[in-house]
Nucleic acid binder design. Sequence first.
DNA 1: GTTGAGCGTT
Length: 417
Amino acid sequence: MKYRNPETGGFRGLRLVENRIHPPPEGIWGNNIYVAVFPKEQNKRKGEDGLENPSAKTKRVDRQKCSDLIVLGLPWKSTEEDIRSYFSKFGELLMVQVKRDVKTGQSKGFGFVRFGDYEAQLKCLSQRHMIDGRWCDVRIPNSKAMGYPDHLVEPNSYNDMCLQEGSQQQMSRKVFIGRCTEDMTADDLRSYFSNFGEVLDVFIPKPFRAFAFVTFSDPEVAQSLCGEDHIIKGASVHISNAAPKSYDKQRAGSQGGFSPNQGFGSQGNWGGSMGGKGSQQGNMGGPGGGNMANNPLLNNLGAAFQLNPAMVAAAQAALSQGGWGLLGMMNQGQGGQGGSAGVNQGQQQAGQGSGDGNQMQTSQGGQGGSFGNLAGSTNQPATQSGGGFGSFGGWNGSQGSSETQGGSWGGQTKSGW
DNA sequence: GTTGAGCGTT
């Protein structure tokens, strides 16, 4: 067996003596990927175990050459400057590319980088990257595997999660549409679901698999539809929570598949991924306030999001059961109030609010502010509800939940989702 | 058939 020396990038071997690893690893395997090596007799430069042979005349330096690295999952809006400024923290960059549609100039959501230093490449390959609010994967091109081990993989649905003001909780804005029929096109789904809120993206796997994903700009819209059956093109589809794509289900709850090196939301970059493929820009934040990343309150919330995995999983489990009880009070209104991603009060409000009804307001569609956050303790009546969203009715006017503190979370969690 | 793909105009 061999593994890469994290310091040098070179392979280190585990010696076998009488078919046992010698010396024994004594329970410490570290975060390395171990590769089984089989003997090949006609390899002169290496030992018969396929490892570097220190006594060989020629050093195998070619293993340490940098190659182009593909960056998958880039936000549509990310530019080469964005990518460069992000990745340069690993080392000198020789090349940065964002691949775009030649005609429209629209990013294809991936790009390439090349480091000058192999150490930088290794480091970069060994982790996942949060760029402008999305988790991005860096790989050797056309190599199926990711450069980093599975246990570092965050649920990809992070990209579809939104902060729930005052509740230390996240909600998915993506829903799973089951029982789709083959004649339902992405356009069909988009136009149907646009009746409920702005649709950022529709995904239909090919070949036909009888399901689809719809991503809304507003997580409340997504959540409100979950559990419902709708008739589209004469067929009854079922709407439910979109489960994370790459969530390690065996570990859910106990170990969590969550990244050890980056706390949940630690980058504080929310809102960066708005505006899906070909859609009208999702307008979070009114005039002048487009970028939530610069919002002190949200950054602070990001910090509050560094929960332990069990808590996060517990929150997810609660959410998946429709556990609205954990959420702070929410008002749903049409049209919003005079624009702004307005955070009207200072950051000291973040994360507190047991009992005093943290409040969140969102608005449907429309110009004007969405995601307005009115920090503080006065319950402000909802803007006139109605407007065809009957299912929201019950939320208005209720007292803020006092259970948002979360101290009581943490018991056994499900692998739900 | 109810839980997702994407790999480079040189």
